[in-house]
Computed example of a mutant assay.
Amino acid sequence: MPVITRRSVIGAALATAVVLPLVGTTQLAEASTRSVQTVDPTSGRVRYGFNPGGWWRSAGQTPKSAYDQAVAAFGQPGFMRLWPNRFTTTWRGGLIPTYVDDAKTPVYINLGSDVAGVNRGAYDAAWIQILRTAPKDRWIWFSFAHEPEGDGFTVAAWQQAQMRLAKLKAQYAPTNVRFAPLLMGSTFHASRYRVSATGNVPWSTWFNFDLSNVDAIGADLYQWGTQDATADTAAAVVNPAIEAARSKGKGLVVGELGARNTLTDTGRATFLKDAVKLFDASRNVRAVAYFESDNGSKGPWNLLPKPGTPTSLPKSIAVWKSAVQSSPKS
């Protein structure tokens, strides 16, 4: 989710690449039999979908009701962002809600933010079990400690945690399971990364570590303009992340895409239409989820209205429906 208030100052940034030692010789031997795929078979066809949490909490809407509302509006998603925020070894009903599991939808799962715990090995056994038991009938991406800017741990600690999880992923995961660390969209902007959190560093510093076991770079991309005349263009929001991932030879997974509904419906629809064109034209973009949320003082971001309320954004909804329905079906 977009973080409105950051909790503390970024720790020391690394000037040189971080290298994590191998977990062990046995795991290394096993890893040699599992090559890390960097290009999906669906390369060139972007999966579009939505984030299933955060709709109208003040109205008491359940995640399942929100999911049903989104499916009714957009169609079956080609991709979903999920928030178990824990290393549970239960897939169905744990890492993936039952109704998403039934649909076999490709997903992007966040595992929480206990960086210190990961770095001391507290979750190794659970992570290995998750990987060994992962469904093989859909694409699955993982992130950990998403949007780390200002979250109280150092850049070096975050990098070490990403490498530890990515290395175990390469050793134990089936080839449909991918790992994609994620930053806030503003961190990819040369003129804006300091806005993310006091003392924040550029994306290139965050990703200055051994990416050999990382399959994609993740980004949460938001248009922050308050009105059509001053709104960020899709190119200004989207292109820096696309180029950053491309420069590292990686795919791009967008966990959250959002545009404030203080724009007119026409302005919002234009932003989304232009963003989709950019995503579709970039062969390294894997998947994009729209963030359906009424939360946050700088939102709201939702395209869909409160349940039972007529839509005020028919053009914007139509654009995203078209994108979702263009997603690969397998």
Rank of each mutant, 00 (worst) to 15 (best):
M1N: 12
I4V: 15
S8R: 13
I10Q: 14
A12T: 14
A15R: 13
P21N: 10
L22T: 14
V23F: 11
A31V: 05
S32F: 01
S32R: 14
V36R: 14
V36D: 02
Q37R: 15
V39M: 02
D40S: 15
R45P: 00
G49T: 07
F50M: 09
G54A: 10
G54Q: 11
W55H: 10
W55S: 09
S58F: 11
A66S: 15
A66Y: 09
A70H: 00
P77T: 10
F79P: 07
P84T: 10
R92L: 02
G94W: 06
P97E: 08
D101W: 11
D102S: 11
T105D: 06
V107Y: 00
I109Q: 03
N110L: 09
L111Y: 08
L111Q: 05
D114R: 08
D114L: 06
V115D: 06
A116D: 12
A116H: 09
N119D: 06
Y123A: 00
D124P: 05
A126L: 01
W127P: 02
I128L: 01
Q129H: 03
I130K: 03
I130C: 01
I130R: 03
R132Y: 01
R132Q: 15
T133W: 00
P135R: 02
K136H: 07
R138D: 02
W141S: 06
H146T: 07
P148V: 07
E149P: 06
E149W: 02
E149A: 10
E149M: 03
G150S: 06
V155S: 03
V155T: 09
A157Y: 09
A157M: 05
Q159V: 01
A180Q: 08
A180H: 05
P181Q: 08
L183G: 07
T187S: 13
H189S: 14
H189K: 15
S191M: 03
V201Y: 04
V201R: 06
W206R: 05
F207T: 01
F207R: 08
N208F: 04
D215W: 02
G218N: 01
A219V: 07
D220T: 10
L221H: 09
G225F: 00
T230W: 09
T230P: 10
V237L: 05
K248G: 03
K248N: 10
L252Q: 10
V254D: 08
G255T: 05
T264F: 07
D265G: 11
A269S: 05
T270V: 04
F271N: 05
L272A: 03
R286L: 07
A287Q: 05
V288P: 02
A289V: 00
Y290W: 12
Y290E: 02
F291P: 01
S293F: 03
N295F: 02
K298F: 09
K298W: 08
G299P: 02
P300V: 01
N302T: 11
P305H: 06
G308C: 01
K315M: 12
K315R: 15
S316T: 12
S316I: 01
V319T: 03
W320N: 11
V324E: 08
V324G: 09
S327G: 09
P328T: 10
P328D: 13
S330H: 12
